[in-house]
């Protein structure tokens, strides 16, 4: 008798990871805060006028890169409804769309900032926080838990502080500078506040939510292997309350997918420190290896190799007035 081989599989022993539809690039046309809104529609039109040629350049460069020129490019726009609430979707969204149209820009997707904290009952910010793997200072040998200050994340070793353990009659310590782990001779030490909390609970910081936003646009977040946010097609009108607006609304039915291999954001230089913080955070997020593999396989299949490191898939244009 020949030997018989049995194969045996168990559903719950295997991991399944949903894959996201992906564009080549996701272009963020703007990010609207209360102060921009208060400055009136002219400010918005001015911003779109500045952005339009850069968006077109990006589009053209991808068309040149993709065989057959069939570049999948989607655009998005983020409105802050997390740190301050102003106006209503029914009043604000048409104004934004109108201003964009005047500059020949199409906004494919509209997102709410609070969706980066929690969307459809999934606490996205928590998911990402759990996936932080802190950048270890030299001498980190695994024997002790990673040094963390609750609610903060840095790119090196902080200065020793007065509260460190001291033994009676032991020798005292003087001041020492902080140090960047990946420094080249000199340090650029960055320490980012991820959240703070008060009696009402935890408030995520702007850079942390912006990091979640980047990960969403890169299609890198999963909850139980599922995509936590799927764009919802727009209805005939926009609701009167932000809470009723879906996390991500698809405004253009013909749009390329929301998530993309790469992202590009056109921003005012006042966001430079925020984006430095975002990169500090993103370079310490451990993305699900299965998701990374999916994306790499897909892009490889299209003949578009992607950089291994997530932060290298993100680009910016900082535009002064």
């Amino acid at each position: 008798m020949t030997p018989a081989y049995a194969t045996f599989g168990e559903v719950e022993a295997e991991r399944r990871v949903a894959s996201a539809p992906l564009s080549h690039v996701s272009i963020e046309l703007g990010h609207l805060y209360m102060e921009d809104f208060q400055a009136g529609p002219e400010r918005l039109r001015e911003q779109f006028r500045h952005v339009a040629p850069w968006a077109e350049t990006m589009r053209a460069s991808w068309r040149a890169r993709v065989p057959g020129g069939r570049a999948r490019v989607s655009t998005c726009f983020l409105i802050d409804d997390y740190f301050s609430r102003f106006s209503t979707p029914s009043e604000l969204v048409p104004m934004v769309l109108e201003a964009a149209a005047e500059c020949d820009l199409t906004i494919d997707y509209l997102a709410r900032e609070s969706a980066c904290a929690e969307a459809d009952g999934v606490k996205l910010a928590r998911l990402v926080e759990d996936r932080l793997v802190t950048d270890p200072p030299p001498g980190t040998d695994g024997s002790r838990p990673p040094v963390t200050e609750t609610g903060w994340l840095c790119n090196g070793a902080r200065s020793p502080y007065g509260g460190a353990v001291q033994v009676a009659m032991g020798s005292a310590q003087g001041w020492e500078p902080p140090a960047q782990n990946a420094k080249r001779r000199h340090s650029i030490f960055v320490d980012v506040e991820l959240w703070d909390s008060d009696s009402r609970g935890r408030t995520w910081s702007c850079p942390f939510l912006a990091a979640v936003w980047q990960l969403l646009r890169l299609g890198m977040i999963r909850n139980d292997g599922e995509l936590p946010v799927r764009p919802t097609p727009r209805g005939p009108s926009f609701p009167a309350s932000w809470d009723e607006l879906p996390a991500v609304v698809q405004l253009n039915p013909a749009a390329a997918p929301f998530s993309a291999y790469t992202t590009m954001s056109v921003l005012s230089p006042r966001f430079l420190p925020v984006e430095l913080a975002v990169r500090t955070i993103l370079s310490q997020v451990f993305v699900d290896a299965a998701v990374l593999r999916q994306v790499a396989d897909r892009s490889g299949g299209e003949g578009i190799p992607l950089p291994d490191e997530l932060v290298d898939r993100i680009s910016y244009i900082f535009l002064g007035a």
């Binding site: 045996f8 168990e10 719950e12 022993a13 793997v133 802190t134 950048d135 270890p136 200072p137 030299p138 001498g139 980190t140 040998d141 695994g142 990673p146 782990n181 451990f286 290896a289």
Partner: peptide, 20 residues
């Protein structure tokens, strides 16, 4: 979780940074 021939449950993979 796998159940045969004995119940075995395993956590998601975790990463820890080291430089030493």
């Amino acid at each position: 979780i796998s159940r045969r021939p004995i119940v075995y449950a395993v956590s998601p993979d975790q990463l820890t940074g080291v430089d030493c």
